[in-house]
Design a protein around this nucleic acid. Structure first.
Lengths: 304, 304
DNA sequence: CCACGGATGAAACTTACTTTCATGAGGCGT
DNA sequence: ACGCCTCATGAAAGTAAGTTTCATCCGTGG
């Protein structure tokens, strides 16, 4: 026997709350009291137990269950979960993060964090979107087949260069990084056909890096530039150009997002090279991981 | 009777899932099975009853309850609701990009790029969400007022440490980084009250870093740990603990997302410290930018 | 080898949820 | 007005879910 109407809430795209308030007038008085509580504060309702909610609505648990059925739920637990989900979704939008711009003077730490994270994440995503897989492929090929790889970078880009060098080294590729221009120039002079030189410069105008890359190219090495500006000087001495997409305009922020964007590109190249020779790379990585094992404490689980 | 440590989840505004995956290694095997199910599909877990979930994780209800407590919940119902809310918030992945996991063997470069960027961006966002502004504030205060700041880190975290040191230095704070443990220990021994020591370790188990931080603490310095795992050994020697939220599970990927997450935290601290004394920081940044000006070519517009 | 401490599941127990059922308040035809 | 029906409602019984307790097991270190 068909008991109550039980409106199909199985599909209520507009939202459960909307759905409930829509059929509020069709509910019995006691159920309406429950409904009003629920609509007024879904998140709070989700936290309450059925007995609690019943008491708050000055009715019995049975009525609450009836209410659940009336709005199309199987039972109270299901309602609770739907309410929690609903409530979570509707507090989302207060997204007042400062986009792109500078950090406002009076910002508190929470704002600063939100702004930085947003810009950082954005730089990473946008960089990936505009990265040309074909160019990456060529670079990966070149590095994978290279006799030797030199990575150049100065200042903040130097860290990235160093990171790339270390990564390549870990998978068994012969790679170098030089914190010093003179040494770098010396090394570049010794490169030859089949070798690869990677120059990293956010602005693309770092003369030291350009100079070294030029030297490498003159010696017959394949040159790769990683920069944020596709028409900057460094691209003139590069066979392959990879670009990042950090919209860092102000110097004051220091190179923040750009580093992350560069690192993302480095990661892509690294994984690309590693994928090119899976077995070897894997073995190398495992060996290196094992090597530092003795410098770790509490191997398995951590603490008690 | 204080049973388990019960990390305060009262503050994990960013994400319960993130919080859980951070705690994962510190859980017992059976609890880890539960955690993995929950992290893999929060929405689904929220729908299950405790008995159901226990069965799925091949364990008992008791363990599921223990898991709830371990991650800071009162009990299963609360966890359920939080999960439902969490799941609702992350409606995003209409994408088939591989989340968290490894790069599939047959992947082409475009796929690799998409996957890496997604995970990197995610790590940055999630890290920011779970960062505790209050703790950051304390760290910023300490660093801003410190006589001297030592930054420690080994391996991949060493780059981050070095980056942080350089950033602090650029805004006129006296900061050091040591690639060598011995030197680091020596330096730590010379720290005192009012100085700050920052230890960076993704796993939180790097004995060298822990050792140095311990030394610094013994000398009266304020110690700060930056790690992905809130209950790892390094947190025991730190006055302030900052956590990242990279879900890097496999060693094979190398520390990719974790670096970016760490750098994001570093950026936040950096800006925080800089904001503390705007005028001075700005002047310092401009001075340093000017210093490298002569090493740039094509200053204004780029090319023709 | 034993003592110890932590991890674990079975079972007892408690609480929450669901069903059943009796009551009583209206509505309505006679 | 009376009886009869319908429906809303909560008390109480019943069932399922969640929680606690406790004995056992296993690995660790003395």
């Amino acid at each position: 026997m068909a008991k109550s109407p039980k409106i199909s809430a199985s599909h209520e795209p507009g939202g459960l709350i909307v759905h409930i308030s829509g059929l509020l007038p069709s509910l019995s008085p006691a159920e309406q009291r429950v409904a009003r509580l629920v609509v007024a504060d879904p998140a709070d309702a989700a936290r309450r137990t059925i007995t609690d909610l019943a008491t708050a609505a000055e009715t019995s648990e049975a009525t609450v269950i009836r209410f659940c059925r009336s709005v199309g739920m199987d039972g109270y637990p299901q309602l609770r979960i739907r309410l929690a989900a609903e409530a979570a979704r509707r507090i989302e939008p207060p997204d007042a993060r400062v986009v792109g711009g500078d950090i406002p003077p009076g910002a508190d730490l929470a704002q600063i964090i939100a702004t930085i994270a947003f810009n950082d994440a954005r730089a990473v995503e946008e960089t990936a979107e505009q990265l040309d897989p074909a160019v990456c492929e060529q670079v990966v090929e070149a590095i994978g087949a290279a006799g030797r790889i030199d990575v150049y970078g100065a200042g903040a880009s130097g860290f990235v260069a160093s990171d790339f060098q270390q990564k390549l080294h870990r998978i068994g590729r012969t790679a170098f990084y030089f914190p010093d221009v003179h040494t770098a120039l010396t090394s570049a002079a010794l490169l030859g056909r089949g070798d690869v030189a990677v120059g990293i410069s956010h602005t693309g105008t770092t003369s030291d890096v350009i100079e070294v890359l030029e030297q490498a190219r003159a010696r017959g090495a394949t040159t790769v530039a990683l920069t944020n500006f596709p028409r900057s000087p460094i691209t003139e001495v590069a066979d392959h150009v990879l670009t990042t997409a950090a919209r860092e305009t102000t110097y004051r922020s220091g190179a923040m997002a750009s580093r992350l964007a560069q690192l993302t590109v480095v990661d892509c190249l690294f994984v690309g090279v590693a994928a090119r020779n899976r077995a070897k790379a894997r073995k190398a990585l495992e060996a290196t991981a094992e090597a530092v094992q003795s410098h770790r404490v509490g191997a398995g689980r951590r603490r008690a």
